[in-house]
């Protein structure tokens, strides 16, 4: 059973903690220790920043053939979400009829079970997205 691999990511997965480059101001999610734009100037200076969880659908798909652990969620909607802070991130959109999802749809992050290590292992929690109220 795997524990630390998931445990060490908990803050970003629970609370959308990313990083900001103090040199150019670009926000990254997940956190990075080097800004790809500023390189060495940013090393050791990246600052933590929390995303608001707001966003819009940048692209999406309805998954019918799953990776291990997602068998009973299919068909499920995967999306790339564009955030107002800058970074895009990948996550499921839930509580929605897949056919209603569209590019540009406003969504926000919610806290859900993402995966679990079999019946006896650790439950991994993190972000998914749901449509904003119409």
């Amino acid at each position: 059973m795997v524990v630390p691999r998931f445990w060490r990511e908990r803050r970003s997965r629970y609370s959308l903690i990313g990083t900001r480059c103090p040199v150019c101001g670009t926000v990254y999610f997940p956190p990075r220790s080097v800004c790809p734009k500023c390189g060495r100037k940013s090393v050791g200076k990246m600052e933590e920043v929390q995303l608001s969880g707001k966003g819009k659908v940048y692209s999406y798909t309805i998954v019918h053939q799953n990776v291990i652990g997602y068998k009973y969620q299919k068909p499920y909607v995967m999306a790339i979400i564009e955030t107002p802070e800058g970074p895009k991130l990948t996550g499921q959109i839930v509580d929605v009829e897949p056919e209603k999802v569209h590019i540009g749809m406003p969504v926000h992050a919610v806290f859900r079970r993402i995966a679990e290590d079999g019946k006896a292992g650790i439950i991994q929690y993190g972000y998914k997205f749901i449509p904003d109220e119409e």
Binding site: T61, V63, Q65, N66, V67, Y76, M78, I114, A115, K128
Partner: peptide, 15 residues
């Protein structure tokens, strides 16, 4: 940050 959340490789291609 992609697969953990349920993204398959075809899902990424599909997006």
């Amino acid at each position: 940050w992609e697969v953990f959340f349920g993204a398959t490789f075809p899902a990424l291609g599909a997006m």
